[in-house]
């Protein structure tokens, strides 16, 4: 199949960007979306031109590196997909495809479609962990976790940290990413001791990093490649409210 790409090109963070048009020729419907861009890039390199920069790594939907907005949808048109597992069979010959980077104040563009998502790491560092020094754990089966809690925790823990929730949110809110981690740890007995501290520290940073606020538009949920539910955001809010009201600070 033959396609027309309109791709966001931007030399670096300080430059202005614009959409540029490229032709993708003889693309197999079985190729992945990123392989399609590879083909375009190979052609550009052969011509000595600057290939389209885009983040990608595992290409099997688990590392969370790939981050393209395809025709206005983060990770493209398929539900529960990352763009690296999107295949060209979902497009038609002759389609015009617009490719843009994640857009958020908290994710500045580095080049073309590559953005800096270090804010997500900083959010994790604020409290997305259980403080247990190596060596001090009890026997694994000494901590009983009801299967249902373990399953729910796993649903939340499946987050790949790609940031599509931010990219898709009309408000560029990071709530779903944050809630997934807070939920996972709140659901497990291991997470209880730091429960209040965690939710307060992590949610406080989301404002400081310049993310927007959740208004329950549910675009994050509809976009999330790992199908993480907004019920997690409700749980985060519940945790937040309880922590704010019950903790002993003044």
């Amino acid at each position: 199949m033959n396609l027309t790409l309109k791709v966001w090109r931007q030399k670096d963070g300080a430059s202005r960007g614009a959409l540029e048009t490229y032709a993708a020729r003889d693309i197999s419907p079985d190729a992945s979306f990123l392989e399609m861009i590879d083909i375009v890039n190979e052609e550009l390199i052969r011509e000595g031109k600057d290939p389209i920069a885009f983040d990608n790594d595992c290409r099997e939907g688990i590392c969370g590196t790939c981050s393209l907005v395809v025709n206005g949808r983060a990770h493209g048109p398929q539900r529960n997909h990352t763009v690296c597992t999107l295949h060209m069979r979902h497009f038609k010959d002759g389609d015009v495809i617009v490719v843009e980077p994640w857009r958020s104040r908290a994710f500045p563009v580095i080049k073309d479609c590559v953005v800096d998502r270090a804010a997500l790491d900083r959010l994790t560092a604020a409290g997305g962990y259980i403080s247990v020094p190596t060596g001090s754990a009890v026997d694994a089966n000494a901590i009983l976790v009801p299967r249902d809690s373990a399953e729910k925790a796993m649903d939340a823990a499946a987050c790949i940290g790609c940031g599509a929730c931010v990219a898709a949110c009309p408000n560029a809110s990071v709530s779903l990413f944050l809630a997934a981690k807070i939920s996972q740890l709140a659901l497990l007995p291991q997470g209880q001791p730091e429960r209040e501290r965690r939710v307060k520290a992590m949610t406080a940073l989301m404002k400081a990093e310049g993310f927007g606020n959740c208004s329950w538009e549910r675009e994050c949920e509809a976009t999330c490649p790992k199908d993480i539910k907004i019920a997690n955001i409700s749980r985060m809010n519940r945790e937040f409210l309880l922590a704010a009201l019950s903790s002993a600070e003044h």
Binding site: V69, P77, R103, R105, P170, G210, G212, E217, E219, E221
Partner: peptide
């Protein structure tokens, strides 16, 4: 809150298509 939300995305998308979460009332 809305002002913060607008500020959170200073450069918008050239193409927008909703993924199916938004409704007329939420938008």
């Amino acid at each position: 809150v809305q002002w913060e939300n607008w500020k959170a995305r200073p450069i918008g998308y050239t193409t927008t298509a909703w993924a199916g979460g938004r409704t007329i009332s939420s938008a």
